[in-house]
C-alpha cells in the first residue's frame, strides 16, 4: 500500500507533523500571556455589568472553569483552540473566529499582492544589478534598495497619500471599496484593485529591497559556478543563459527568504491596514489593542501562526520543485 502514496504527500504530512510542537508551544505561550494579563474574563464581565455580589462572581468563575487548577485550564484552553474556538469578542459581540474569518480575505489579498510585487520587481532588479555589477545602473539600484529598506512603511504610506490622493487626486485614501457604489463584476474588481494600489506599494517596498539585494548576491555567486561557464562554452548566451541557467538556481535563497518573511509581512500589515483603513486582520489587531480585546488578539496570534506554518510548508514544496537535488524523504 505504501508504494501508492506519492512522496510529495508523505513529505507534506511529515512537515505538518513537525510543526505540531511549535503550535503547542505557541498555545502554551498565549495561555501564559492571558494568565499574566491583569484581570480575567469574569472581571471584564462584572466590570461591564457595573459590579456584582461575590457569590455571583464565584459562580461565574466556576462556570468559566476559572476555579480549576492552571493545568486543567491550560488543557481546556488547548482543546478549544484545536477546535478553532478562540472565545468570544466582547467588542464585536461575536465569536472571535467569525470576526477573524470576515477579515482574513482582505489581509490575504493584501499580502499576496504585496509579496508578488516585491518578489517580481525584487528578483528582476536584483538580476539586472548583478548583470551590470559595479556599473552606474548597479549603484543606482543598490542605493535605491538601501533607501527602500530604511523607509518606514507608515511614512511611505503618508507620502503616497500626500502625493496621489491629496495633491493629484488619483487614488482613494482608504477603505477596500468605494462606499455606496455597490459595483458588481469587473467594475468591483477594478474598484478593489484601485484601493489596493497604495497599501500594496507601502507594504511591499521594504521586502522588494530585501529580495533585490539577496538576488543580486545570489546571481553573482551562481555566475561564477562551473556549470555556467560550461553553458557559455556550449554557446548559451544572453537571455538564455540568464533565464535558463542562472536565474533558476539563483532563486533558491530568495524563495527561502520569502517563506521566512511571511510572518514579518503579516506584522507589517498592522500599520498599513490601519493607515488605509482596510478591514483586515492587521487593523483588527490594532483596534483590539486599543479596546483591550484580549480574546481577539490571542485569536489573531493563533490564526496567523497557523497561516505561517502552512506557508512555510508550501515554500519547502516550491523549493523542492525548484531544486530537484532535494529528496522528498
Amino acid at each position: 500500500m505504501s508504494l501508492l502514496v506519492p512522496p510529495l504527500l508523505t513529505y507534506t504530512v511529515r512537515r505538518m507533523v513537525q510543526a505540531i510542537p511549535i503550535i503547542i508551544l505557541i498555545m502554551i505561550g498565549s495561555f501564559l500571556l492571558i494568565k499574566l494579563a491583569p484581570g480575567d474574563t469574569v472581571d471584564a464581565l462584572v466590570g461591564d455589568m457595573g459590579g456584582a455580589d461575590p457569590a455571583f462572581v464565584a459562580r461565574l468563575r466556576a462556570e468559566y472553569g476559572l476555579d480549576q487548577s492552571v493545568f486543567v485550564q491550560l488543557w481546556r484552553y488547548m482543546l478549544k483552540l484545536v477546535q478553532l474556538d478562540f472565545g468570544w469578542s466582547y467588542v464585536y459581540e461575536q465569536p472571535v473566529i467569525e470576526v477573524l474569518m470576515s477579515r482574513l480575505g482582505n489581509t490575504l489579498l493584501l499580502m499576496v499582492s504585496s509579496l508578488v510585487v516585491a518578489f517580481t520587481f525584487g528578483v528582476a532588479l536584483g538580476a539586472i544589478a548583478a548583470r551590470r555589477a559595479y556599473s552606474w545602473t548597479d549603484n543606482m539600484i543598490s542605493t535605491l534598495g538601501l533607501v527602500f529598506y530604511a523607509m518606514p512603511s507608515f511614512f511611505l504610506s503618508l507620502l503616497l497619500i500626500l502625493i496621489f490622493s491629496v495633491k493629484l487626486g488619483w487614488l482613494p485614501v482608504g477603505g477596500i471599496r468605494t462606499i455606496g457604489a455597490f459595483k458588481t463584476g469587473w467594475a468591483d474588481v477594478a474598484d478593489v484593485a484601485r484601493h489596493l494600489v497604495m497599501p500594496t506599494a507601502a507594504l511591499s517596498l521594504i521586502y522588494l529591497a530585501f529580495y533585490m539585494r539577496l538576488m543580486r548576491t545570489s546571481v553573482l555567486e551562481v555566475m561564477d559556478l562551473d556549470f555556467v561557464r560550461t553553458a557559455r562554452a556550449k554557446g548559451a548566451g544572453g537571455a538564455r543563459l540568464m533565464f535558463h541557467h542562472v536565474m533558476r538556481n539563483a532563486l533558491l535563497p530568495v524563495v527561502t527568504l520569502l517563506g521566512l518573511q511571511f510572518s514579518t509581512v503579516l506584522g507589517g500589515s498592522v500599520v498599513v491596514e490601519t493607515i488605509f483603513s482596510l478591514p483586515g486582520i492587521g487593523q483588527l489587531a490594532y483596534t483590539s489593542v486599543v479596546k483591550r480585546d484580549l480574546n481577539t488578539l490571542m485569536g489573531i496570534i493563533a490564526l496567523s501562526s497557523i497561516i505561517v506554518v502552512i506557508v512555510n510548508v508550501l515554500t519547502d514544496l516550491i523549493y523542492a520543485w525548484l531544486d530537484p537535488r532535494i529528496e522528498l524523504k
Partner: peptide, 15 residues
Amino acid sequence: QTIPSFVLLLTLVAI
C-alpha cells in the same frame, strides 16, 4: 519566529 513579531509586540504592550 512563527508569531508575527509586530503582533506579539502589540500584544505585550496591550497586556
